[in-house]
Design a binder for these strands. Structure first.
Length: 381
DNA sequence: CATGAGCGT
C-alpha cells in the first residue's frame, strides 16, 4: 500500500497512482544493432544477512514459482558471503511474481532487496535517476516507500535506511530506471506531506559531490582569523575594500577588551566575497598568515564541530581497540600504582586507572591500557 | 539531522 500523500499546505490531491511496474524496459541496442534482452528470469538478491544460505533462498523463492537455480555469491578463498545472490526462474512470470512478493522479505531478520540481474554496470556506476528522501515518517517502511514512489515510474532499487534493530532512520533512496521518473518524483513529491510529515526529495549526491556544490554556493559574509592583535576593523576595511563594496566589517573583541584575532567582513556582492577569499586566504599580513573563508552560519559551525568531535571519539576508539583491559573484582585497597606494577611485565602501559566513587572509594574495577593490542591480549591470558 | 550498495556460473 502506498502512503497517504498530501500537499504540504493541506490542499490538492496526491499524484494519481500508477500500476507497479515489474518488467524492466527493453535493453538499449548493443553495438552492431543487435538488441541484448535483459534476462527477465534472473534475479539479483542483495542486502543479505551474512549467514543466509542457498537453501533458505531456495525455500523462500520457490513460493513464487519454479526455481531453476540459486546461488549465494561467496569470496573465493574465505567462502564468506558477499551479501548477494542470484535466483533463476525458467518463467519470466514467476520472476516477476517473486520480485513483487519477495522484495523486502526478511531473511534472518534483515529485509532482502530483489532486482532483476543486470550485468551491465553502467547504471550502477553513473548513479543516474537516483534520488534521496529525508524527513520520512518512521512508520514508512521499504514497501510503502516503494509503492509511493513507483507512481512516477519503474524502480530499480529502493530502500529505507534502518538502524541495527530494524527501525527506520527517517531517510531512504530510490533509483529509477529512467531519469524522467526521478525528475518527476522530485518535482511532485518534494515538500509534500507523507503521513503528515513534509519530505525532502532531491537528487542523490555522494558526500564529495555535496561538499563541492556547497563550496560553489553563493555567500556574502567572509570569516577572517589569525589576525594580529593590533589589527582593527579599519584595517580589515582597508584590505578587503580592494575586492569590492563592503557593507560591514568587524573584529571580535573579548571580555577583556582585547581582540579575539578574528572577524567578519560582509560584501555587497557574493562574487567579490568569493574573490576576496580566493586572493586573501593564506596571505601574510602584519606577520600573520590570515585564514580567510566563507563565514559559516551558527548551525553549520555547530554541525562541523559535532562531526569533528565524533570523528575524534571514533579515532580514539579505533586506536585503543583491543589495547584496553577492563578489570573487576579488584581488592578495594589496590591503587593505580599497584595495578601498574602488577601488569608492567606484559608490556608498556599507557594508562592505568582504578574506578572510584565521589568519595574516592574503589569500585573494585579499573582499566589498564597497553601500547599494543598484542601486549593487552597477553596480559589477558 | 540524515545522501547505500550493487551483478555469477
Amino acid at each position: 500500500m502506498a502512503a497517504q500523500v498530501a500537499v504540504a499546505n493541506g490542499g490538492g490531491a496526491g499524484p494519481a497512482a500508477a500500476a507497479v511496474a515489474v518488467v524492466p524496459a527493453p535493453a538499449p541496442a548493443a553495438p552492431g544493432g543487435v538488441t541484448q534482452p535483459l534476462p527477465t528470469t534472473s534475479l539479483y538478491v542483495g542486502d543479505l544477512e551474512a549467514n543466509v544460505t542457498d537453501s533458505q533462498l531456495y525455500e523462500l523463492f520457490s513460493q513464487a514459482g519454479q526455481v531453476v537455480s540459486v546461488r549465494v555469491c561467496r569470496d573465493v578463498t574465505s567462502r564468506r558471503s558477499l551479501g548477494y545472490a542470484y535466483v533463476n526462474y525458467s518463467s519470466p512470470m514467476d520472476a516477476a511474481r517473486a520480485m513483487e512478493a519477495l522484495n523486502f522479505a526478511p531473511l534472518n531478520n534483515k529485509p532482502i532487496r530483489v532486482m532483476y540481474s543486470n550485468r551491465d554496470p553502467s547504471s550502477r556506476r553513473s548513479g543516474s535517476a537516483n534520488i534521496f528522501i529525508k524527513n520520512l515518517d518512521k512508520t514508512i517502511d521499504n514497501k510503502t516507500l516503494h509503492d509511493t514512489f513507483s507512481a512516477f515510474g519503474a524502480i530499480l532499487s529502493c530502500k529505507v535506511a534502518m538502524d541495527d534493530i530494524g527501525q527506520s532512520k527517517g531517510f531512504g533512496f530510490v533509483q529509477y530506471e529512467k531519469e524522467e521518473s526521478a525528475q518527476s518524483a522530485m518535482k511532485s513529491l518534494n515538500g509534500m506531506l507523507i503521513n503528515d510529515k513534509p519530505v525532502y526529495v532531491g537528487p542523490f549526491l555522494r558526500k564529495q559531490e555535496r561538499d563541492n556544490s556547497f563550496d560553489k554556493a553563493k555567500f556574502n559574509n567572509v570569516f577572517v582569523k589569525n589576525l594580529s592583535e593590533s589589527t582593527t576593523k579599519d584595517d580589515l576595511v582597508k584590505v578587503f575594500s580592494e575586492y569590492g563594496t563592503i557593507t560591514s566589517a568587524v573584529v571580535m573583541i573579548g571580555m577583556d577588551g582585547k581582540s579575539r584575532c578574528f572577524g567578519f567582513v560582509n560584501f555587497e556582492s557574493p562574487d567579490d566575497a568569493a574573490r576576496a577569499v580566493e586572493e586573501l586566504n593564506g596571505k601574510k599580513i602584519n606577520d600573520k598568515e590570515w585564514y580567510v573563508g566563507r563565514a559559516q552560519k551558527k548551525s553549520e559551525r555547530e554541525m562541523d564541530l559535532k562531526r569533528r568531535f565524533e570523528q575524534s571519539m571514533k579515532d580514539a576508539a579505533d586506536k585503543y581497540q583491543g589495547q584496553n583491559l577492563y578489570l573487576k573484582n579488584l581488592d578495594d585497597g589496590i591503587t593505580d600504582d599497584q595495578l601498574r606494577e602488577l601488569f608492567s611485565n606484559f608490556g608498556k602501559i599507557t594508562s592505568c586507572k582504578i574506578m572510584r566513587d565521589q568519595n574516592g572509594v574503589s569500585k573494585g574495577s579499573g582499566f589498564v591500557s597497553f601500547s599494543t593490542r598484542e601486549e593487552a591480549s597477553q596480559a589477558a591470558h
